[in-house]
Structures are given as C-alpha cells and as structure tokens.
C-alpha cells in the first residue's frame, strides 16, 4: 500500500496564557517571545484605552469633544524649541539624555520654530538677542507657550541691573511657567513641563 501519508503540520509552541490563575499576570519564563509580552501589555492597556474612549464619546454627546481632544493631544506632545542661551541649556540638554529622558513625557525638541509649540528660554537674554527671540516666538504656530527657565530668564538673575541684559523675558513675550534655580536641575525643568501640562488641562489651549 502506498497511501500518501497525511501532512503533519510543524509543531508550534502554544501561546502562554494571557492571565494566570487568580487574575494575576503569570511569571514569564525566559523563552516567552517578545510578541507574547506585547500581547500581555496590550491586555493591561485595553481597559485604560476603553475608559478614555468612553470619556471622549461622552464629550462628543455633549458637543465639547474637539477642544478637549486637542488639549489632550497638545499637552502630551509639547515640542520645545531646540536652542540654548546660556548655562541653563546644559541642564536642558541633560534632561533629554538617558538619565532623565524627557521624551517619555512626549517632549521632543525640534530645530525649527515652525514645528514647535513651546519655547523654553534657558539662559540670559541680552538686548542683542531680544528681537531675535521675539522673531522666533512669532514664527511659532498657535497655540504656543513659554517657560522661563532659571533666574536670568525669570527676572534677570545676577545681571538684573546690567546694561546689556533684559530683566526678565516676560518683558518680551508672555510667560506661562517660571522655573527658579541657577541653573535649575533637570528634575525642576521636567516639573515645570508637567505644571505646564496641568495649566493647559485647566486653562485650555
């Protein structure tokens, strides 16, 4: 007899159970694949996403959807202008490094003011650079916000009475959040950004 042998499908590894006994996530063994880990994560993410979506549906029913949607999207993706004026720019740069990693808040520095909605004035503003700062601010599209980082940008700092220094950047552009420090640590800058997010949540864009 030469009957054809039935084709045996290749052995596949069964998927790990998504939720273990007792509703707890199972302890993953080292051979669990990356895709399986992502599947488990999405199981955690889905309830939160459902909750957020139902809130949006509720706002749509009330006719107030679009503005909160833009606020939510805008405050979670603040793009600051990538520039530096003085030593605060070193702390600004450190906040985007590996240790503080400001990108986890959606904060990504952009090199063009056309792509930015946040200006972090990180350093001493002199009269020579004042009109260039105003030009950059005017080139940013609405809605836009300004953070005065450090004592110099807040009120002139130690150079308050100097002949060449603007005593506070709020003489030039409207400032939303002031961060004290000389210079402020990266934690303080991140705290300022989170407070700006709270401000946008309360006040709207």
């Amino acid at each position: 007899m030469s009957a054809a042998q039935p084709t045996v499908p290749p052995a596949t590894k069964p998927m790990a159970p998504a939720v273990g006994p007792g509703g707890q996530l199972p302890v993953l063994s080292p051979d669990v694949s990356f895709i399986e880990i992502e599947a488990l994560r999405s199981q955690q993410f889905l309830p939160a996403a459902k909750e957020a979506l139902s809130a949006l549906v509720k706002e749509q029913a009330e006719g107030t959807l679009i503005r909160p949607l833009f606020n939510w999207a805008g405050r979670n993706s603040l793009f600051p202008l990538h520039w530096g004026l003085a030593c605060c720019a070193i702390e600004f740069a450190a906040a985007f490094g590996a240790r503080w990693d400001a990108e986890r808040f959606g904060v990504v520095p952009r090199s063009s003011p056309r792509q930015c909605d946040l200006m972090i004035v990180n350093g001493t503003v002199t009269w020579k650079v004042a009109h260039k700062l105003v030009t950059l601010y005017e080139q940013m599209p609405e809605p836009k916000w300004v953070i005065a980082m450090g004592n110099c940008a807040t009120g002139g700092g130690p150079f308050r009475t100097a002949y060449s220094v603007v005593p506070g950047v709020d003489k030039l552009v409207p400032v939303d959040v002031y961060i004290a420090g000389c210079p402020p640590r990266p934690e303080a800058m991140l705290d300022g950004i989170l407070r700006l997010e709270e401000l946008i949540r309360e006040r709207g864009a």
Binding site: K132, T135, P167, L172
Partner: peptide, 11 residues
C-alpha cells in the same frame, strides 16, 4: 529694571 523703558525692535 523698573526705570527701564523697554523697547523691542520687531523685525
């Protein structure tokens, strides 16, 4: 600074 008259030259 309070005595300073602020003039910004817009471009």
């Amino acid at each position: 600074p309070e005595e300073l008259e602020v003039k910004v030259r817009h471009v």
